[in-house]
């Protein structure tokens, strides 16, 4: 291999590795800002901001959803299986919002420790299966997110 090619090869390696190290360091420094949402444990530990809005993520506790009859207001409990937090929201919920489902809510923490959401997004998991298989799994005792019958709009 001639010297010119070797030099070019070294430069290429240097570019890729250098960018890799620089980006890794930068991402490490900004780790907190890259989190799309905080978990209830983090909120309980006081890691979440109290002055500005932030997002919180977790599972909707089965049986905790209480809908107001007259408005779109809804109250439910969010958990990461370690800590729980009560969320209030008024608005349209996404199709995948169910009990047992992972969701992300955007809003503020009230002084009393409940969360006032201005937006609720559903976070679906990476599992895809036909309804019959899901039924079989449920029958076998595997925990799956709650399934509402005929959820399509």
């Amino acid at each position: 291999m001639n010297p010119r090619r070797r030099k070019l090869m070294l430069s290429v390696t240097f570019i890729v590795l250098g960018m890799g190290v620089a980006t890794a360091l930068a991402l490490k420094a900004f780790q907190q800002n890259l989190l799309y949402f905080y978990s209830p444990v983090q909120v309980a530990a006081g890691e979440a901001p109290t002055t500005r809005p932030f997002r919180i993520g977790g599972l909707v506790v089965a049986g905790s959803v209480k809908r107001d009859v007259e408005s779109l207001a809804v109250r439910f409990v969010l958990t990461d299986t370690l800590r729980e937090i009560t969320v209030d929201y008024e608005g349209i919920l996404p199709d995948l919002f169910r009990e047992g489902q992972g969701i992300v809510a955007n809003g503020r923490l009230r002084p009393d420790g409940t969360f006032e959401a201005s937006e609720v997004l559903a976070k679906h998991d990476e599992n895809y299966m036909p309804p019959e298989v899901a039924d079989a799994l449920t029958a076998a005792g595997v925990q799956l997110p709650y399934r509402a019958k005929n959820t399509a709009p």
């Binding site: 905080y38 992300v104 976070k123 990476e126 895809y128 299966m129």
Partner: peptide, 24 residues
């Protein structure tokens, strides 16, 4: 995998069996 994202985790490329039914 590195950060909390709204996007779900990998379905096919994880090391154990893919979490999608064979017919899909």
């Amino acid at each position: 995998e590195w950060w909390h994202t709204l996007h779900q985790g990998p379905t096919i490329t994880k090391l154990d069996a893919p979490s999608i039914h064979i017919s899909m």
